[in-house]
Each structure stands twice: as C-alpha cells, then as structure tokens.
C-alpha cells in the first residue's frame, strides 16, 4: 500500500532523511519511532506530497506521490505535527471546508462531517471556534480532518500529543479500529503506544532506519543472550553463586541484591536455550527456597535506547 524506496531528503547541507526504504502492507498499522529530529516528520511530509524528496521515490496507494500527486493525495489522510486549524472557523465549518477540498461529494458532506465528529468525539464543540479549543480538542479535530474523505492511507504525525490519558486510550482504540480498513502510519516517541497499537515498527535515528520489525521480535531479537532473574532464600548456606554458575548453559552470574538470607541474581545463559528447568532444579535440590524466577526481557524502551545511542553495537 505504501512503498518507500531509497528516500533521501536534504535541506541544504543537512541530511534529514538518508536512504530510507520500507513497505507498509494494506490494513497494517506501522509505527514510526525515533527521537526528536530523527526525520519522522520529514519522511511523513514527503509521503503526503508536502515536499518532494531529494532522491528516491514513494508510492502511496499505487500512485507515485511525485509523479501523480493529485491521485495519491486523494487517497491520503494526513494529520501534521501541528493540527492545521483555522482559528476563526468553527469546527463544523472547518471540517466542511476540508471535505470540499478533499473532494467529498456535496451530497455526502454533511453526513461525513457528522460521522467523523462522532468518531473523534468532537461533536460537542461543533459550533466552537477552532482558535478557542483546548490542545486535546485541537488534536482530535486534526484527526477528524484526516478521516473525512475515508482515505485508504492515514498518515498521523504524533496523533496522541497533547491528549490527556483518557483521550490517549480512546484515540489509540480509534486508530486500532481504523487499521484493517485503512493503512496507517503513525509517528510517536511514546514507546508503549507503539507496542499497543502497531503491528510493525520502524525505528529511525539521524535519518536512517535502524530497525524494522514487530514490537515482539524487536524486544527479543536484540537480546544477545538470555537473562534470568532469580531470587533465592538459601538460609545460612552462602555458595549460591557457585551453584548457579555450575548449571549447564550458564555463562555468567551476578548478585544484584541481598537482604538477610534472601538474595537476587541475574543469570546469563547462551541465547536460544531455556535453562529455567535446570536452574530451578539446582536450587530446589539443594533445599533452598526459590522465591522468584523470570526471564528478563529488554523492554521496547531499552531496545530503542540501544538502537539510537552512539555506542550501540548495532551500528
């Protein structure tokens, strides 16, 4: 549905986006993750036809955004970083105007406007001027505007920015519902948002793609080795560390905490090998109490930091 090939965008001497390629399948929700200034907004602006790329091409809904911009734009709904509202217009007038320029047939306009106002929960401010809305409402009117012409592709630049927690949950639910019928790209720097709403994630940093995968795969793939967290009550016996190190497959044991007879350890093992059975047997057979045993997974947050910091071995 969306195909980006070797996209590069330079502003004078600075390269905002550097040779990005990725695909988005129909009905998929793709998360665009990256620190501020990574090139998320620039990529989205190229995809929506706001600006042409310096090199490379982007095909949206079967139309090259640069060769056939009008046909492609008809199929795109776009929420920019700042919701593009006219302060002097009422919400209803504004949405009616957008439906006109987005080519919604006259007969359907009223129904479409009412429908998107319901879905984005802005119907109660229909007669208010856009300039007098709170940040949360502005954001949702911006989202409503993107949905008006029922586009095949939705490009949302930080759709939950400025919303309160309840609105964030509602908006995420709305976006999830939209996936399936629509192909969605959303950018964010809120990590849980990606794992909750997106099927796939593109992590970009300094204009380059550093990883594309599902949130689950990203978190597991990046563990070089498996790490187990164990908490053991070994009574007076102190040779726990040696006992754990003796378990087959264990490469490293580190004590992280100890309080009285209870101590916690992080046990590293060869990746791809589940040592939980051996580990628990080793503890229980010695008559110690196994209080806790769980795999330590890298959270998406750690993956993100791992991928976007300089020292990352991935680069």
């Amino acid at each position: 549905m969306i195909e980006v090939q070797h996209l590069t965008k330079r502003y004078g001497p600075t390269t905002a986006v550097d040779d990005i390629s990725f695909r988005v399948e129909p009905g998929e929700i793709l998360g665009f993750l990256g620190p501020n200034g990574a090139g998320k907004t620039t990529t989205m602006r190229v995809l929506t036809g706001y600006m042409p790329p310096t090199e490379g091409r982007a095909v949206v809904a079967g139309y090259d955004i640069f060769e056939q911009p009008i046909a492609a734009k008809r199929r795109i709904g776009y929420l920019p970083e700042t919701p593009p509202l006219y302060p002097e217009m009422t919400v209803r007038d504004y949405l009616t105007f957008v439906s006109k320029i987005r080519g919604v047939p006259r007969a359907e306009r009223r129904a479409r406007v009412n429908d998107v106002m319901e879905r984005t929960r802005v119907a109660d401010v229909a007669q208010r001027h856009c300039g007098k809305l709170s940040k949360g409402y502005r954001q949702r009117v911006g989202l409503a505007q993107a949905l008006l012409h029922n586009p095949e592709v939705l490009i949302l630049d930080e759709p939950t920015a400025g919303l309160d927690p309840k609105q964030i949950i509602e908006t995420r639910q709305l976006i999830k519902q939209l996936g399936g019928d629509h192909t969605v790209i959303l950018s964010t720097h809120i990590l849980p948002e990606v794992s909750q709403t997106c099927q796939r994630v593109v992590i970009i940093n300094k204009g380059r793609v550093v990883a594309i995968d599902t949130p689950d795969n990203l978190t597991s793939r990046l563990r070089g080795s498996e790490t187990m967290y164990v908490q053991i009550d070994a009574g007076a016996n102190g040779a726990v560390q040696d006992a754990l190190a003796a378990v087959p497959g264990v490469t490293h044991v580190a004590q992280t905490e100890s309080r009285g007879t209870v101590a916690s350890y992080e046990v590293n093992s060869d990746s791809g090998r589940d040592i939980r059975r051996e580990l628990s047997a080793a503890v229980v057979n010695r008559g110690w109490g196994l209080l806790e045993l769980r795999p330590l997974r890298m959270s998406l947050e750690e993956v993100f930091l791992h991928l976007t910091t300089e020292e990352a071995p991935h680069e």
Binding site: A71, K73, Y78, P84, V98, I101
Partner: peptide, 9 residues
C-alpha cells in the same frame, strides 16, 4: 495550515 492545503488534492 499551508500543510493542509499542500497535502490536499
């Protein structure tokens, strides 16, 4: 708002 106009068809 220019972004709205330039990304509309």
């Amino acid at each position: 708002t220019i972004e709205l106009l330039l990304t509309a068809p």
